[in-house]
């Protein structure tokens, strides 16, 4: 690993200033589970590393009526174990639990998982399907952005020089919303998703019509993505009216995966179909 300067800003402002000054020579580090590996392999060699772990308040989960404000430096382990999230955002807890090992989850942060912008990032589909909003701090201003607009490409996010992700806000889903994240990989642990599918569904009662449907896909495009055309096929229909085969087909069409050592593009498309259908069937059975 190449030598670097290590900085421990105490405030978000300080961190932003540092990142603005240091520019491309600097990398932010939170848990380091990705950056340290990259630096070790020589794939990344920043001359400055700026830690966000020393910034107060960046690692807490605040729950109120509107939703959950999740600090960017919140550990995946803390998300997985958070009682409030377990009851209202269970798919985020299970997504967090599906990442790496217990040891990794005690280091990795939700902000890191998002900012690495790996197409397979397990937190992304769930957060997309829950319409998460990210808060981005610059050294002068603060802006918010739907998560969907945060992802630009593989490894690239919508952060300007001197900006850092500080918070992810997840609105409390409307009462009765069902949610699930399904991850597919060859092993039952320690895998990157070959395909990840997050679905939320809200059925109007007593008609049983689908009022709201959101489907987000991981590992099947340059960024995690929403399958919005597929979602439209569900709205206004009861479960029995869902055109499941068409849904599966369309979801696969909305994906644009690549082939790599983990799977071929064709297989990934098929798995989008399979797991989108499975997620919908699974949720409908609770409705």
């Amino acid at each position: 690993m190449k030598q670097f300067h290590y900085h421990e800003p105490k405030t978000v402002e300080e961190a932003c200033l540092m990142m603005a000054e240091l520019g491309d020579n600097a990398k932010l580090i939170a848990g380091g589970t990705d950056l340290v590996v990259q630096m070790n392999r020589g794939a990344k060699a920043p001359s400055h590393v700026v830690s966000v772990k020393t910034i107060q308040g960046l690692d807490s989960i605040i729950e109120n009526e509107e939703g959950f404000r999740i600090g960017a430096a919140t550990l995946l382990a803390d998300i997985s174990d958070h009682k409030g999230m377990q009851s209202k955002l269970p798919m985020l807890c299970s997504a967090a639990r599906s990442i790496g090992s217990a040891q990794v989850r005690n280091l990795s942060t939700v902000g890191g998982n998002i900012c690495n912008a790996a197409p397979s990032a397990d937190m992304a589909p769930g957060l997309l399907a829950l319409n998460a909003i990210v808060t981005i701090a610059g050294h002068e201003n603060l802006r918010t952005l739907p998560l969907e607009e945060f992802f630009v490409g593989p490894g690239i996010v919508n952060l300007e020089k001197g900006e850092i992700l500080t918070e992810i806000f997840v609105p409390t889903p409307t009462s009765g919303t069902q949610q699930v994240y399904l991850k597919h990989g060859p092993r039952r642990a320690m895998d990157c998703a070959v395909v990840g599918v997050a679905v939320t569904l809200l059925f109007e009662q007593p008609t049983g019509r689908c009022q709201q449907a959101r489907i987000a896909l991981g590992a099947v495009g340059p960024t995690p993505l929403r399958a919005k055309m597929t979602e439209k096929l569900l709205v206004g229909k009861t479960f029995n009216e869902f055109p499941l085969d068409r849904i599966a087909e369309l979801a696969a069409q909305e994906a644009s995966p690549i082939s790599d050592v983990r799977a071929s593009a064709d297989y990934r498309c098929e798995m989008v179909s399979t797991f989108t259908k499975r997620a919908i069937v699974q949720l409908a059975s609770f409705a």
């Binding site: 060859p186 092993r187 039952r188 642990a189 320690m190 895998d191 050592v261």
Partner: peptide, 12 residues
């Protein structure tokens, strides 16, 4: 890597 040349874990 162990990530992509996958040996069975305790969970598998």
């Amino acid at each position: 890597t162990f990530l992509d040349c996958k040996m069975m874990t305790a969970a598998d």
